[in-house]
Amino acid sequence: MRTISDKQGLTLKAATRRGIDQAGGGDALQHVTRVKAGALSKYATVGEDTADKFMPIDIAVECDLEANSPIIVSAMAAMLGYKLVPADDNAAVSMAPITLRDGLKIANEAADVVKAITEALEDENIDALEKRIITREIDQAMQALQCVLRRIGGAA
């Protein structure tokens, strides 16, 4: 008997889908990993034929690297009752100064979140596709914020 529940399997599938999307999609990700876009799609898809197809750990790490965010690994850690934190804040800090472009990137990403939410609520119901779109936009906004946070050396 498996110890991973159906709900946990769906959580892994959702994190995989988010990671692949954030990494530029399966067509882009396939060029930096050992599997093709079709296999990547199976790892992220819920269905009768793909329910038991999960991303191998080496590909999950490559996906998170390409996404510039530990999306899949964080989902795995959360399932085990853990939370990821950077190993060494100083190692992650870029020497590039923060610019106006960084502020604009954050503003644009936040605006995309607001737009996704307001468009989803036009019919007063948020469906599965709209949830994925909102989640993707939130991921992108968080990535922009985390980038600036790392560059200023974390929380003061």
Rank of each mutant, 00 (worst) to 15 (best):
Pro70His: 06
Ile106Asp: 02
Glu119Lys: 10
Ala37Asp: 15
Ala155Leu: 15
Glu137Gln: 15
Glu62His: 01
Gly103Pro: 01
Gly81Ile: 06
Thr99Lys: 12
Ala77Met: 03
Leu65Ser: 12
Val73Ala: 08
Ala77Cys: 02
Glu48His: 11
Ala91Met: 06
Met55Cys: 13
Ala39Asn: 07
Met76Phe: 07
Val85Trp: 04
Thr3Val: 08
Glu109Cys: 11
Arg151Ser: 13
Gly38Thr: 08
Glu137Thr: 09
Asp52Lys: 11
Arg101Ser: 13
Gly9Tyr: 05
Ile59Glu: 02
Ala116Leu: 04
Thr50Lys: 13
Arg132Cys: 07
Asp21Ala: 15
Lys53Gly: 00
Met142Ala: 11
Leu80Thr: 13
Gln146Val: 07
Thr45Ser: 15
Asp27Leu: 12
Glu130Lys: 08
Ala67Leu: 07
Ala116Ile: 12
Ile126Gln: 04
Gln146Leu: 11
Val46Lys: 12
Ile20Pro: 00
Asn125Thr: 12
Leu84Gly: 00
Asn90Ala: 11
Ala128Val: 07
Ile98Ala: 09
Arg136Met: 10
Leu145His: 05
Ala107Trp: 02
Glu137Phe: 05
Glu137Asn: 11
Ala128Lys: 13
Val35Glu: 03
Ala14Cys: 04
Ala23Trp: 02
Lys83His: 05
Thr135Asp: 12
Ala78Glu: 12
Thr45Leu: 06
Ala77His: 13
Met79Tyr: 01
Ala60His: 03
Ile126Thr: 05
Ala92Val: 04
Ile4Met: 13
Asp27Thr: 15
Ala14Val: 02
Thr33Gly: 06
